[in-house]
Design a protein around this nucleic acid. Sequence first.
DNA 1: AACTTGGTTCTCTATTTGCAGAACTAACTG
DNA 2: CAGTTAGTTCTGCAAATAGAGAACCAAGTT
Lengths: 153, 153
Amino acid sequence: MILTTRHKELIERIGVFHEHKGMQPLVGRIIGLLLIHEEGEVSFDEIVEHLGVSKSAVSNALTFLQAKDRCVYSTRPGDRKRYFALKVSDWKKDFQQELENIAEIQKFIDEVLEVRTDKNPEFNCKMIEFSNFLAFFKKEIPALFERFNKIKA
Amino acid sequence: MILTTRHKELIERIGVFHEHKGMQPLVGRIIGLLLIHEEGEVSFDEIVEHLGVSKSAVSNALTFLQAKDRCVYSTRPGDRKRYFALKVSDWKKDFQQELENIAEIQKFIDEVLEVRTDKNPEFNCKMIEFSNFLAFFKKEIPALFERFNKIKA
DNA sequence: AACTTGGTTCTCTATTTGCAGAACTAACTG
DNA sequence: CAGTTAGTTCTGCAAATAGAGAACCAAGTT
């Protein structure tokens, strides 16, 4: 597959988006490439060539993506190459994970409430409300997916 | 206010939590301190002392927090010091912002769909479903807050 | 006007990060 | 078993980051 300027530019933007989420640059670029590549499966050296980076960098980035369960490879009979693909099927799981992650702050809020005195009841009150909201939010996550499945059907 | 080991350890953990979100270390620690400090308002040099860091580092971190609208300071008559506090009142806005941020990926998904051929319809199909879900999710965010307000009342 | 206080800005440095390139391994190939 | 292919691991470096410390500024004090 030949990448146009538009493809390349989109890969870069997907890359920086993921950088903002804390991923290292190349990891984000690879996600972009795997999203854009028409076959969805891209060999190791295609990644090296399309992104113009070293084999070592690609190897490390792919190891990371696989460890995070965001990427898998398949092989073909009579071909030693590995063909890497995103686990797009898992987007629900991933998204749910992200939602749960941002609600993680509740643990800290609750710990903070344990150690706080009642010198500033207004502050404490706000924190309690936030904690309650986060608890509510966590409970709502599965319901959200159910409602989506319902309207889709 | 005297910080116990438990306080300090909690501040550190809140710090690393925020580091994982891409903030620089000291910024996360300051958030922790402002959460834990019983008055909720902490002077510049109290921050310096409690966290054992330089004035310059604190100055930069506070500038950042204020720019991100996560922190404000107030002053007191006859006292030149600034007393810094988290904008805890804004937690709803902040949380909503975070939710919208993670749904930002939809823009990229849609752009990707524009440039993809139909060589892998299964892949495309998954992506379309994901995009639909994200659109649904964005619409649901305000409703979520409304429902919370209702059960709270 | 010199001194203090409260904070900012500038310069420099230690650490960390992200990657290149080379050396290496493992499996196949002639 | 020498050579190729596919990818990994190791070593080293350039750039980015985070923060220290000093110089600095602005406002009040003596």
